[in-house]
Each structure stands twice: as structure tokens, then as C-alpha cells.
Computed example of a mutant assay.
Amino acid sequence: MVEFLETERLILRPLNLDDAERLFLLDSNAEVMKYIGIAPLSQIEQSVEVIKMIQKQYAENGIGRYGVIEKASNLLIGWSGLKFLTEEINGIKNVYDLGYRFLPEYWGKGYATEAAKAFIAYGFNDLNLDEICAHAHSGNDASIHTLRKLGFEEKEKFVDELDGAECYWYELKKENF
């Protein structure tokens, strides 16, 4: 597992329990959670459990979502990264899934794209992956735009079993990055 990745404006590092307060700001925000398929968190202890779950993914799979720190403010502004899917989504598992989630005040600044590019490069160059997958709620235009800008190709529509929402499945091949 890589200790951290760095981009022009961001530091991407494993989440730790000290991140619980900022993660709770993110995951308790109804606007942030609108297309996630689960209700906003209501207690900070839930964020602690999320971090522990992600840390377990680091230990078991050598990868997981990382905290995104804005260099200018030194604040955790969201998360991004690759996750090894061990449970089926769209009938698919045992693939690497790109994801990202940011606080609303950091939307529209290119942070999702910047962080995702670093993780895609890490996945293809360091993990030697041939393909990275992603999925997005059909109504989440910003996320869909980001995935397309990154070169992901829409493969199919599917219904998310969590909330019955229509989603899109995307794939990016190493040779297309």
C-alpha cells in the first residue's frame, strides 16, 4: 500500500481515526449523499466505523479510499481512490473500482479529476492493472462528466440493489489512459 500520493494541489493519504470529524461533515451532508444510495450519517461514531472498515480494506486488499487533503488549507476535503470490490455491484466483483466524494464547497474545482488521475496512474503503473471500473447514479451529472473526462467508457445501465436507482457502469482500459 502506498503511503501517500501527491498532486499539484492535493495530498492523498490513508484515512485515520483523526479524520472522523471531517468525514462526518461529508457523509452527514444530504446533498453529498443524494446519489449514494444510503441515508446521510447522523452520528460521528458512524464515521469512525466507516474509517475502521476502510482500514480493514487497506489491510486485506492493500488499497482503499484515501483521504484527500487540500494543500492550501491542510483540510480533508473528501476522499478518493481505488477499492477492490469483494461484494458484487452490477453482478461484478473482484475488480478495482474508482470512487470519489467531496464536500460541496470543493465541487467544480477539478479536485475529483485531479485525485482520480493520480489513482488511475497508480493503478495502471504501480499495481499493473489492466482495467479500472467505476459506477455512477444516472442523475449524478457531475460524476458522469468526471468519468467521461477521465476516459472511462460507459458499458451498461443497471439498477443498484441498495436503493433501486438506475446507474451506469464504466470501464477504463490501461491502453486507453
Rank of each mutant, 00 (worst) to 15 (best):
Y35C: 08
V48N: 05
N90H: 08
I69T: 00
E45N: 11
E60Y: 11
G64L: 07
V50F: 00
A59K: 00
A59N: 03
M53W: 08
K34H: 05
V68H: 04
V48Y: 03
N74S: 15
I54L: 04
K56N: 12
E105N: 07
M53K: 09
S73F: 04
Y100V: 07
P40F: 02
L76V: 14
E87I: 12
I89W: 04
Q57Y: 11
R101K: 09
F102Y: 13
S73R: 01
E45R: 04
G62N: 02
E88M: 07
A39I: 01
G67Q: 08
R65F: 15
V68S: 09
M53F: 11
F84L: 01
I36T: 11
I36A: 13
V32N: 00
W79R: 05
I77M: 12
L85G: 06
F102C: 14
P104F: 03
Q55E: 15
K83E: 13
P40S: 05
E31S: 13
I38M: 08
G99N: 13
L41I: 01
G81I: 09
S80Y: 03
Y35G: 09
V95P: 06
I92R: 12
L41G: 00
L82E: 05
V95T: 07
G91K: 04
K83S: 14
E105Q: 07
K71P: 05
I89Q: 10
Q57G: 15
L76A: 14
E88C: 10
V68D: 07
Y66Q: 01
F84C: 00
V32R: 02
S47P: 01
K93A: 13
I38P: 02
D97P: 08
L98S: 00
M33S: 04
A59F: 05
L98R: 03
E105A: 14
W79M: 13
K56V: 12
W79T: 10
E31Y: 06
Y58H: 03
S80P: 06
G64F: 05
F84S: 02
I63G: 13
Q46S: 03
K71Q: 04
I36D: 07
K71M: 06
V50N: 02
Q43H: 04
L76S: 09
V95F: 09
K83R: 13
E31N: 10
L41N: 00
K71F: 06
V68L: 11
E45D: 15
V48F: 07
G81E: 08
F84E: 02
V68M: 12
I44S: 04
P104N: 01
W79I: 09
E31L: 12
G81W: 00
E105K: 00
Y106L: 11
D97S: 07
S47W: 03
E70H: 09
Y100M: 09
I51W: 06
Q46Y: 01
E105L: 10
M33K: 03
G99K: 07
Y35I: 10
E31K: 06
V50S: 03
G78F: 13
Y106I: 12
G37N: 01
I89V: 15
G99C: 13
